Each structure stands twice: as structure tokens, then as C-alpha cells.
Amino acid sequence: MKNEAIKVFQKRKKNIQETWMKLQLSDESLREDLMTNEDLRRQSDELLTAFVEALDDNNIDDPRSSNFDPVVDILSAISISRAKQGYTPRETGFYVFSLKDALLHILQQDIKDPQELYTQSLKIIKLIDSFGVTTFETFIKGREEVILRQTDEITEISTPVIKVWDGIVALPIIGTLDSARTQVVMESLLQQIVESSSSIAILDISGVPAVDSLVAQHLLKTVSATRLMGAECIISGIRPEIAQTVVHLGIDLSGIITKASLASALKTAFSILHLQVIKK
């Protein structure tokens, strides 16, 4: 004999949909700027249809059943999409848990036996709560993807390699240098050296807030990599406090040309290339 809750859901699917939509539309945090009501209804109908079709007597109390794979796939896609669109975890969670409220509401209307209602309600609560956990897990995954992409974009923007003259490139470094960022800096710089056939690279650290032994090691690695490509490296932006720190830490920069300003470094680069800039 078919489970009582399943019979109710199959018979009252349209009513469940309408109740669910009313709950969502009445929520104060509804984001009509991110999704139209029509799109929300279409999305909700797709999920509800997959859920009702997947339900049977064997899996109504087993959220791990393979029959629910289409439901999980739809939920995962919705969660990742909402994470990328800018929805909050609460808004995404409410989408799933309002479905639970709609299902329980219809059960209360159609199942009159208190014990049967209690039994079936527990099964639905367990099922939807499990889907809620899946929703949060995939939402976090989607948000992490957004953060990683934004981090990569910010890193690329903050490490621009500029061709300032024929044979001279400059890389203004803004922010702290760590291992990951040093790798990006080196890749960008070396690639530009090859593409522009430059023989001098200027590393400007005016935007680096502080230099410690670790930052200095990263700079030395970048200088060494640049020299292996056949280019000379000049470090500019050596402020008085950075110079004192370098001396205090015993960091040896004696084999590297260092300048206080980018203008001074560019003047030195011109001298190395036997160029002369004359004011007309």
C-alpha cells in the first residue's frame, strides 16, 4: 500500500506549489532584484516536481537514496547559482525550508489521524533537513569559488607589469608579498620580459607596507629569476624605514641595484642602456 504522505503530495502537488510560493513571496528578504517571481516559480516547480517523482515507499525516510540524485543535482545547481548571484546563506536556506513548511501544511490538512500525521511529518522533516544540509554545503562551495576567482583577479590587477621604455619594464608591487603572490609576480614579470625583449626590470616596492626577512627572500627570488632570463633588476621605493629594517635584519642586498624612487631607478636604467633624455 502506497505511503499516505506520498499519495497526498502526488494529489496536491499544485496546492503545495502555491503554498510554497506564498511563503517565499511573503518573506521580507525576497530578492526581486536578483530573480523575477516568474523565474522563482519556474525554479520551484522544477524542484518540487523532481522531489514528488522521486518519492516512493522505500526512500521517504532515506535521504541518501539514489532516487533523490536529480533532486540533489537541482538543489546543488540552485545553491551554487545563488552564491554567485549574491544571495545570503539565510535567503538560500529559507528557499529549502519554506518547502518543508508547505509540505507539512498540506499534510496537516489531509491526514486526520494524529499518530499518522506525526509519523509522516517526522519523515518529511528528516528528508528536507538533509536536503538543507546539502544546500548549505554547495552554497559554501559556490561562495568559495567566487572568493577564489575574485582573489585571482585582484592579484592580477595588483601586479601589473608596465613597459616604460624600449627594453625597460616596471612592476609596482602593492601590498604584502607572500609565497603565492611572489609566484604570480615572477610569472607576470618573466612573461613580460620575454614578450618585450626587455633587459632591465624595475621592482617598485613603494606600496609594500613593511619588509621583513620573508618579504626580502621573496624579492631576492624574483631578482634571481629575472637575472636567469638575462635581465638586470633594480629595486626602487626603498624608504628610510625599509632601509633600517633591511640593515637590522642583516639582509644582503649589496649585489642588487636599489633606489629610493621609481624616477631614480628609471634614470639608472637609462644610464645602463646608454640612453639620455634631454629636455627641449
Rank of each mutant, 00 (worst) to 15 (best):
S121A: 05
W165F: 01
Q109F: 09
P172I: 01
I154R: 06
E137Y: 06
L103G: 02
G142E: 02
I128V: 15
D129P: 11
D113F: 02
V164W: 02
A77N: 12
I140H: 14
Q115C: 12
T119E: 14
I147P: 06
F131A: 03
L122D: 10
K123F: 09
R143P: 11
D152H: 10
V96T: 09
P114C: 03
V71L: 08
T119Q: 13
D101S: 14
L75K: 04
H105K: 12
E156N: 10
E91S: 10
I162F: 00
A102D: 03
T135Q: 00
S98D: 04
T88F: 02
L117N: 10
I128R: 10
S76W: 10
Q108L: 10
F97T: 08
L99C: 11
K126R: 09
L107V: 06
I162A: 01
S65L: 05
Q120G: 07
T119H: 14
V161P: 04
R64A: 12
L103K: 01
I168F: 03
L104D: 02
R82Q: 01
R143N: 10
R64I: 13
E145G: 07
Y87V: 08
H105I: 04
T159C: 05
P89K: 10
V71M: 13
D113H: 15
V71W: 03
S66H: 11
L75Q: 05
D110T: 09
L103R: 02
L103M: 01
F94A: 12
D73Q: 11
L122F: 10
P172G: 06
K126A: 08
T119R: 15
H105R: 08
E144P: 15
L103A: 00
P114E: 01
A102I: 02
D73P: 07
Y118D: 13
R149H: 13
S76N: 15
I173M: 02
K123H: 14
D113V: 10
R82V: 02
I173Q: 03
P70D: 09
K84S: 07
F131S: 03
A102Q: 03
S81V: 04
E116S: 13
I80W: 03
G167Q: 00
R64N: 11
K84I: 06
S158G: 05
E91K: 08
S65G: 10
L148H: 13
Q85M: 02
K123A: 14
L107F: 01
R90K: 14
I168Y: 00
L117Y: 13
L107G: 06
L122P: 08
L171C: 04
S158L: 01
V161I: 01
I111L: 07
S79N: 10
I78N: 09
I154E: 00
A83H: 02
G132L: 15
L127S: 08
A83R: 07
L99D: 11
G167K: 00
R149P: 12
F136P: 09
S76M: 15
S158F: 00
Q109R: 08
E116K: 11
L75W: 04
G132C: 13
Q109M: 12
S79A: 09
D110H: 04
L122V: 07
L75F: 05
P160W: 03
D101P: 12
R82D: 04
T135L: 06
G86P: 08
D73V: 11
G142A: 00
